[in-house]
Amino acid sequence: MQKSVIGYGSIFHKSDTAHISNISNTGFLGEHELFYAGRFAIKHVIYCILEHKAIEHIWLPEYYCPYVKNWLEQEFSAIKYYDIDPFDADAQIDWSPFSSSDLVIANNFWGLKENVLPEGERPIVIEDHSHGWLSKGCIESNADFCIASLRKTLPIPLGGIAWKPIMGNCDIPLKSLKDTSIDTEINPMLKSWDLIENAMKTKATCTNEEEKIDFLLNNSQGETLLRNTQEIVPLLKRHEDVICSNLFKDFNAYKRANLNFILKTLESSQIFKVITRDKNIPFGLLLAFKDWGLFTNFKQFLITNMIYPAELWPQNRIAQEYKFLLNIHLDFRYNEEDLEYMSNTINQWTLQQSYINTEQEL
Protein backbone atom coordinates (compact mmCIF):
# COMPACT_ATOMS: atom_id res chain seq x y z
CA MET A 1 0.00 0.00 0.00
CA GLN A 2 1.41 3.36 -1.05
CA LYS A 3 -0.13 6.54 0.33
CA SER A 4 1.28 8.40 -2.67
CA VAL A 5 -1.28 6.38 -4.68
CA ILE A 6 -4.22 5.82 -2.32
CA GLY A 7 -3.92 9.18 -0.56
CA TYR A 8 -5.42 9.95 2.84
CA GLY A 9 -9.00 9.30 3.88
CA SER A 10 -11.79 7.54 2.00
CA ILE A 11 -12.66 3.93 2.90
CA PHE A 12 -10.71 1.82 5.38
CA HIS A 13 -8.21 -0.68 4.06
CA LYS A 14 -8.15 -4.24 5.39
CA SER A 15 -6.37 -4.01 8.74
CA ASP A 16 -5.09 -6.25 11.51
CA THR A 17 -6.57 -4.75 14.68
CA ALA A 18 -5.41 -7.44 17.12
CA HIS A 19 -2.97 -4.99 18.76
CA ILE A 20 -5.70 -2.45 19.55
CA SER A 21 -7.07 -2.87 23.06
CA ASN A 22 -10.72 -2.78 24.07
CA ILE A 23 -12.27 -0.03 26.16
CA SER A 24 -12.80 -0.89 29.82
CA ASN A 25 -16.46 0.19 30.05
CA THR A 26 -18.48 -2.19 27.89
CA GLY A 27 -21.43 -2.45 30.26
CA PHE A 28 -23.46 0.42 28.79
CA LEU A 29 -25.26 -1.89 26.35
CA GLY A 30 -28.52 -3.42 27.48
CA GLU A 31 -30.52 -5.48 25.01
CA HIS A 32 -28.85 -5.13 21.62
CA GLU A 33 -28.94 -6.40 18.06
CA LEU A 34 -26.36 -6.24 15.27
CA PHE A 35 -27.20 -5.37 11.67
CA TYR A 36 -25.54 -4.79 8.33
CA ALA A 37 -26.09 -1.03 8.59
CA GLY A 38 -27.29 1.68 10.94
CA ARG A 39 -30.33 2.39 8.76
CA PHE A 40 -31.54 -1.18 9.31
CA ALA A 41 -31.09 -0.64 13.04
CA ILE A 42 -33.27 2.51 12.94
CA LYS A 43 -35.98 0.74 10.97
CA HIS A 44 -35.99 -2.25 13.32
CA VAL A 45 -36.23 -0.06 16.42
CA ILE A 46 -39.09 2.00 14.97
CA TYR A 47 -41.08 -1.14 14.20
CA CYS A 48 -40.38 -2.47 17.71
CA ILE A 49 -41.83 0.76 19.10
CA LEU A 50 -44.85 0.71 16.78
CA GLU A 51 -45.80 -2.74 18.06
CA HIS A 52 -46.31 -1.24 21.53
CA LYS A 53 -47.19 2.42 20.99
CA ALA A 54 -49.04 4.53 18.43
CA ILE A 55 -46.74 7.20 17.00
CA GLU A 56 -48.10 10.43 15.53
CA HIS A 57 -44.89 11.86 14.05
CA ILE A 58 -41.31 10.68 13.57
CA TRP A 59 -39.00 13.68 13.96
CA LEU A 60 -35.55 13.84 12.36
CA PRO A 61 -32.94 16.60 12.65
CA GLU A 62 -33.11 19.01 9.70
CA TYR A 63 -29.37 18.42 9.23
CA TYR A 64 -29.05 14.68 8.70
CA CYS A 65 -27.71 12.08 6.28
CA PRO A 66 -29.69 12.56 3.03
CA TYR A 67 -29.58 8.86 2.19
CA VAL A 68 -31.12 7.96 5.55
CA LYS A 69 -33.69 10.75 5.20
CA ASN A 70 -34.76 9.41 1.82
CA TRP A 71 -34.64 5.81 3.01
CA LEU A 72 -36.90 6.52 6.01
CA GLU A 73 -39.28 8.69 3.97
CA GLN A 74 -39.82 5.72 1.66
CA GLU A 75 -40.73 3.56 4.66
CA PHE A 76 -42.71 5.92 6.92
CA SER A 77 -45.25 8.62 6.01
CA ALA A 78 -45.22 10.58 9.28
CA ILE A 79 -41.71 12.09 8.97
CA LYS A 80 -41.20 15.66 10.18
CA TYR A 81 -38.05 17.72 10.80
CA TYR A 82 -36.80 19.88 13.65
CA ASP A 83 -34.01 22.46 13.80
CA ILE A 84 -30.81 22.18 15.84
CA ASP A 85 -27.35 23.63 15.18
CA PRO A 86 -25.16 20.66 14.15
CA PHE A 87 -21.96 22.70 14.54
CA ASP A 88 -22.51 23.85 18.13
CA ALA A 89 -21.64 20.99 20.48
CA ASP A 90 -23.46 22.72 23.35
CA ALA A 91 -26.73 23.32 21.47
CA GLN A 92 -29.64 21.35 22.92
CA ILE A 93 -32.88 20.17 21.35
CA ASP A 94 -35.96 22.34 21.86
CA TRP A 95 -38.46 19.72 23.02
CA SER A 96 -41.49 22.03 22.99
CA PRO A 97 -42.76 21.10 19.46
CA PHE A 98 -43.01 17.39 20.34
CA SER A 99 -45.81 15.48 22.05
CA SER A 100 -45.69 12.29 24.07
CA SER A 101 -47.15 10.54 21.00
CA ASP A 102 -44.11 11.43 18.90
CA LEU A 103 -40.81 9.69 18.25
CA VAL A 104 -37.68 11.85 18.08
CA ILE A 105 -34.37 10.80 16.55
CA ALA A 106 -31.66 12.78 18.36
CA ASN A 107 -28.22 12.86 16.77
CA ASN A 108 -24.94 12.72 18.66
CA PHE A 109 -23.41 15.11 16.14
CA TRP A 110 -19.81 14.11 15.38
CA GLY A 111 -19.39 12.35 18.74
CA LEU A 112 -19.48 15.68 20.60
CA LYS A 113 -23.12 15.91 21.63
CA GLU A 114 -24.55 14.92 25.00
CA ASN A 115 -28.30 15.23 24.60
CA VAL A 116 -30.27 16.26 27.68
CA LEU A 117 -33.69 14.59 27.75
CA PRO A 118 -36.64 16.34 29.40
CA GLU A 119 -38.09 14.98 32.61
CA GLY A 120 -41.69 13.83 32.89
CA GLU A 121 -43.93 13.13 29.93
CA ARG A 122 -41.96 13.22 26.69
CA PRO A 123 -41.67 11.56 23.28
CA ILE A 124 -39.85 8.29 22.69
CA VAL A 125 -36.19 9.09 21.90
CA ILE A 126 -33.82 7.19 19.64
CA GLU A 127 -30.24 8.49 19.70
CA ASP A 128 -28.03 8.10 16.64
CA HIS A 129 -24.36 7.60 17.54
CA SER A 130 -23.12 6.77 14.04
CA HIS A 131 -20.38 9.42 14.22
CA GLY A 132 -19.79 8.90 17.92
CA TRP A 133 -19.56 5.17 18.62
CA LEU A 134 -18.00 4.73 22.09
CA SER A 135 -18.01 8.50 22.65
CA LYS A 136 -18.98 9.95 26.02
CA GLY A 137 -22.51 10.72 24.80
CA CYS A 138 -22.85 7.16 23.51
CA ILE A 139 -21.64 5.39 26.65
CA GLU A 140 -23.57 7.65 29.04
CA SER A 141 -26.81 7.82 27.04
CA ASN A 142 -30.13 7.51 28.86
CA ALA A 143 -32.25 7.54 25.69
CA ASP A 144 -34.95 4.94 25.16
CA PHE A 145 -33.05 3.34 22.29
CA CYS A 146 -29.75 3.98 20.53
CA ILE A 147 -28.41 3.04 17.12
CA ALA A 148 -25.11 3.43 15.29
CA SER A 149 -23.57 2.73 11.92
CA LEU A 150 -20.47 0.88 13.10
CA ARG A 151 -18.54 0.86 9.84
CA LYS A 152 -17.87 4.58 10.14
CA THR A 153 -15.57 3.83 13.11
CA LEU A 154 -14.64 0.16 12.77
CA PRO A 155 -12.55 -1.06 9.80
CA ILE A 156 -15.24 -3.50 8.63
CA PRO A 157 -17.18 -3.71 5.34
CA LEU A 158 -20.63 -3.27 6.88
CA GLY A 159 -22.11 -3.05 10.36
CA GLY A 160 -24.77 -1.43 12.49
CA ILE A 161 -26.14 -1.81 16.00
CA ALA A 162 -29.28 -1.05 18.00
CA TRP A 163 -29.40 -1.16 21.78
CA LYS A 164 -31.28 -0.15 24.89
CA PRO A 165 -28.95 1.85 27.15
CA ILE A 166 -28.51 0.53 30.67
CA MET A 167 -29.26 4.06 31.92
CA GLY A 168 -32.57 4.26 30.05
CA ASN A 169 -35.93 3.29 31.54
CA CYS A 170 -38.11 2.49 28.52
CA ASP A 171 -40.25 -0.62 29.01
CA ILE A 172 -40.64 -1.33 25.28
CA PRO A 173 -38.49 -4.38 24.46
CA LEU A 174 -35.95 -4.55 21.66
CA LYS A 175 -37.04 -7.76 20.03
CA SER A 176 -34.61 -10.12 18.37
CA LEU A 177 -34.32 -10.05 14.61
CA LYS A 178 -36.05 -12.96 12.91
CA ASP A 179 -33.49 -15.52 11.74
CA THR A 180 -34.70 -15.87 8.16
CA SER A 181 -32.57 -17.68 5.63
CA ILE A 182 -31.86 -15.98 2.28
CA ASP A 183 -30.31 -17.85 -0.62
CA THR A 184 -26.70 -16.75 -1.06
CA GLU A 185 -27.31 -16.17 -4.76
CA ILE A 186 -29.83 -13.40 -4.05
CA ASN A 187 -28.63 -12.07 -0.68
CA PRO A 188 -27.86 -8.38 -1.40
CA MET A 189 -25.93 -7.87 1.84
CA LEU A 190 -23.66 -10.85 1.17
CA LYS A 191 -22.85 -9.34 -2.22
CA SER A 192 -22.41 -5.88 -0.72
CA TRP A 193 -20.12 -7.20 2.05
CA ASP A 194 -17.98 -9.14 -0.44
CA LEU A 195 -17.62 -6.16 -2.78
CA ILE A 196 -16.61 -3.76 -0.01
CA GLU A 197 -14.33 -6.33 1.62
CA ASN A 198 -12.59 -6.88 -1.72
CA ALA A 199 -12.20 -3.11 -2.03
CA MET A 200 -10.61 -2.97 1.43
CA LYS A 201 -8.24 -5.84 0.59
CA THR A 202 -7.20 -4.25 -2.70
CA LYS A 203 -6.63 -0.90 -1.02
CA ALA A 204 -4.40 -2.56 1.60
CA THR A 205 -1.94 -3.67 -1.10
CA CYS A 206 -2.58 -0.96 -3.70
CA THR A 207 0.53 0.29 -5.54
CA ASN A 208 -0.85 1.74 -8.79
CA GLU A 209 -3.74 3.67 -10.32
CA GLU A 210 -5.36 0.59 -11.90
CA GLU A 211 -5.72 -1.06 -8.49
CA LYS A 212 -7.01 2.22 -7.07
CA ILE A 213 -9.73 2.38 -9.73
CA ASP A 214 -10.55 -1.26 -8.98
CA PHE A 215 -11.10 -0.79 -5.24
CA LEU A 216 -13.08 2.41 -5.75
CA LEU A 217 -15.37 0.63 -8.24
CA ASN A 218 -15.92 -2.36 -5.96
CA ASN A 219 -16.70 -0.08 -3.04
CA SER A 220 -19.15 1.98 -5.11
CA GLN A 221 -20.99 -1.15 -6.27
CA GLY A 222 -21.23 -2.43 -2.69
CA GLU A 223 -22.56 0.93 -1.47
CA THR A 224 -25.17 0.99 -4.24
CA LEU A 225 -26.45 -2.43 -3.22
CA LEU A 226 -26.75 -1.27 0.39
CA ARG A 227 -28.48 1.97 -0.58
CA ASN A 228 -31.08 0.14 -2.67
CA THR A 229 -31.93 -2.51 -0.07
CA GLN A 230 -34.99 -1.69 2.06
CA GLU A 231 -35.44 -5.13 3.61
CA ILE A 232 -33.64 -5.84 6.89
CA VAL A 233 -31.35 -8.76 6.08
CA PRO A 234 -30.17 -10.79 9.11
CA LEU A 235 -26.41 -11.00 9.65
CA LEU A 236 -24.57 -14.11 8.59
CA LYS A 237 -22.66 -15.66 11.50
CA ARG A 238 -19.24 -15.09 9.94
CA HIS A 239 -20.03 -11.41 9.42
CA GLU A 240 -21.32 -11.08 12.97
CA ASP A 241 -18.02 -12.53 14.23
CA VAL A 242 -16.04 -9.89 12.32
CA ILE A 243 -18.13 -7.09 13.81
CA CYS A 244 -17.96 -8.50 17.35
CA SER A 245 -14.17 -8.85 17.21
CA ASN A 246 -13.88 -5.09 16.61
CA LEU A 247 -16.91 -3.82 18.51
CA PHE A 248 -15.20 -2.45 21.63
CA LYS A 249 -11.77 -1.64 20.20
CA ASP A 250 -10.55 1.75 21.42
CA PHE A 251 -10.15 3.39 18.02
CA ASN A 252 -11.03 6.71 19.65
CA ALA A 253 -7.69 6.76 21.50
CA TYR A 254 -5.94 7.22 18.14
CA LYS A 255 -8.34 9.99 17.14
CA ARG A 256 -7.70 11.82 20.41
CA ALA A 257 -3.91 11.67 20.05
CA ASN A 258 -3.95 12.57 16.35
CA LEU A 259 -6.33 15.49 16.84
CA ASN A 260 -4.18 16.90 19.66
CA PHE A 261 -1.14 16.65 17.38
CA ILE A 262 -2.70 18.31 14.34
CA LEU A 263 -4.34 21.14 16.29
CA LYS A 264 -0.89 22.22 17.49
CA THR A 265 0.27 22.72 13.90
CA LEU A 266 -2.90 24.04 12.26
CA GLU A 267 -3.01 27.76 11.46
CA SER A 268 -6.10 29.69 12.53
CA SER A 269 -8.52 30.66 9.77
CA GLN A 270 -11.23 33.26 9.30
CA ILE A 271 -12.88 31.04 6.69
CA PHE A 272 -13.60 27.86 8.63
CA LYS A 273 -13.89 26.84 12.26
CA VAL A 274 -12.72 23.62 13.87
CA ILE A 275 -15.58 21.77 15.59
CA THR A 276 -14.36 20.21 18.82
CA ARG A 277 -15.16 20.08 22.51
CA ASP A 278 -13.11 19.63 25.67
CA LYS A 279 -13.20 16.09 27.10
CA ASN A 280 -14.97 14.75 24.00
CA ILE A 281 -13.43 12.98 21.03
CA PRO A 282 -14.72 14.19 17.65
CA PHE A 283 -15.23 11.91 14.67
CA GLY A 284 -12.21 13.48 12.97
CA LEU A 285 -10.87 16.90 12.04
CA LEU A 286 -14.18 18.70 11.54
CA LEU A 287 -14.05 21.96 9.57
CA ALA A 288 -17.25 24.00 9.22
CA PHE A 289 -17.71 26.68 6.55
CA LYS A 290 -20.16 29.53 5.99
CA ASP A 291 -19.54 29.97 2.27
CA TRP A 292 -20.32 27.27 -0.31
CA GLY A 293 -17.81 28.57 -2.84
CA LEU A 294 -14.92 28.53 -0.36
CA PHE A 295 -16.07 25.16 0.94
CA THR A 296 -15.96 23.57 -2.52
CA ASN A 297 -12.65 25.31 -3.34
CA PHE A 298 -11.08 23.89 -0.17
CA LYS A 299 -12.51 20.43 -0.78
CA GLN A 300 -11.11 20.35 -4.32
CA PHE A 301 -7.73 21.60 -3.08
CA LEU A 302 -7.55 18.70 -0.62
CA ILE A 303 -8.52 16.16 -3.29
CA THR A 304 -5.90 17.57 -5.66
CA ASN A 305 -3.38 16.96 -2.88
CA MET A 306 -4.55 13.36 -2.30
CA ILE A 307 -6.54 14.09 0.86
CA TYR A 308 -10.07 12.72 0.54
CA PRO A 309 -12.45 14.34 3.04
CA ALA A 310 -16.05 13.36 3.74
CA GLU A 311 -18.77 15.96 3.26
CA LEU A 312 -21.13 15.64 6.23
CA TRP A 313 -23.63 15.93 4.76
CA PRO A 314 -24.56 17.07 1.24
CA GLN A 315 -28.11 18.16 0.35
CA ASN A 316 -28.71 19.90 3.67
CA ARG A 317 -29.62 23.57 3.88
CA ILE A 318 -29.90 25.15 7.32
CA ALA A 319 -30.42 28.63 8.76
CA GLN A 320 -27.31 28.68 10.96
CA GLU A 321 -24.26 30.83 10.19
CA TYR A 322 -22.08 27.80 9.47
CA LYS A 323 -23.72 25.53 6.92
CA PHE A 324 -21.20 23.08 5.42
CA LEU A 325 -18.90 20.50 7.03
CA LEU A 326 -15.86 18.54 5.91
CA ASN A 327 -14.38 15.73 7.96
CA ILE A 328 -10.75 14.70 7.53
CA HIS A 329 -10.08 11.27 9.00
CA LEU A 330 -7.55 11.14 11.85
CA ASP A 331 -7.89 7.48 12.78
CA PHE A 332 -5.42 4.68 13.51
CA ARG A 333 -4.24 4.58 9.88
CA TYR A 334 -2.14 7.72 10.24
CA ASN A 335 1.19 8.54 11.87
CA GLU A 336 2.78 11.90 12.68
CA GLU A 337 4.32 12.21 9.22
CA ASP A 338 0.87 11.79 7.67
CA LEU A 339 -0.64 14.32 10.07
CA GLU A 340 2.08 16.85 9.25
CA TYR A 341 1.31 16.44 5.55
CA MET A 342 -2.41 17.03 6.18
CA SER A 343 -1.74 20.05 8.37
CA ASN A 344 0.75 21.58 5.93
CA THR A 345 -1.70 21.13 3.07
CA ILE A 346 -4.52 22.82 4.98
CA ASN A 347 -2.19 25.63 6.06
CA GLN A 348 -1.09 26.13 2.45
CA TRP A 349 -4.70 26.69 1.37
CA THR A 350 -5.33 29.02 4.31
CA LEU A 351 -2.27 31.08 3.35
CA GLN A 352 -3.36 31.24 -0.30
CA GLN A 353 -6.79 32.51 0.71
CA SER A 354 -5.19 35.10 2.97
CA TYR A 355 -3.13 36.41 0.02
CA ILE A 356 -6.23 36.49 -2.20
CA ASN A 357 -8.17 38.47 0.40
CA THR A 358 -5.28 40.90 0.82
CA GLU A 359 -5.05 41.46 -2.94
CA GLN A 360 -8.79 42.11 -3.16
CA GLU A 361 -8.61 44.69 -0.38
CA LEU A 362 -5.84 46.68 -2.11
Results as ranks from 00 to 15, higher is better:
121 E>D: 10
170 C>E: 03
146 C>V: 04
144 D>S: 13
162 A>K: 12
123 P>M: 05
126 I>D: 04
146 C>G: 08
161 I>A: 00
140 E>I: 01
147 I>Q: 08
122 R>D: 05
138 C>S: 12
125 V>D: 03
162 A>N: 07
132 G>R: 02
169 N>H: 15
159 G>T: 05
139 I>S: 00
150 L>K: 04
128 D>E: 08
146 C>E: 00
167 M>A: 13
122 R>W: 04
125 V>F: 05
129 H>N: 05
143 A>M: 05
136 K>G: 08
155 P>H: 14
162 A>I: 12
135 S>T: 01
144 D>I: 10
178 K>D: 12
147 I>A: 01
142 N>R: 12
172 I>R: 07
168 G>A: 08
164 K>I: 14
169 N>G: 01
140 E>N: 15
126 I>A: 06
167 M>W: 05
129 H>P: 00
145 F>L: 02
172 I>A: 03
121 E>T: 14
148 A>Q: 06
136 K>H: 15
141 S>H: 05
131 H>G: 03
152 K>Y: 05
142 N>I: 05
128 D>P: 08
171 D>C: 06
145 F>G: 01
149 S>I: 14
143 A>C: 08
159 G>D: 03
130 S>F: 01
178 K>T: 15
163 W>Q: 10
177 L>M: 09
129 H>S: 03
131 H>F: 08
126 I>H: 04
178 K>A: 15
120 G>I: 13
164 K>A: 03
129 H>C: 03
126 I>M: 06
166 I>K: 14
165 P>L: 07
166 I>Y: 02
149 S>C: 15
146 C>F: 02
140 E>H: 13
132 G>F: 00
164 K>N: 02
119 E>F: 06
150 L>I: 01
147 I>Y: 00
141 S>V: 07
144 D>L: 02
169 N>M: 02
161 I>C: 04
158 L>E: 03
157 P>G: 14
143 A>K: 10
148 A>F: 07
139 I>Y: 02
127 E>H: 13
132 G>E: 06
179 D>T: 15
169 N>T: 13
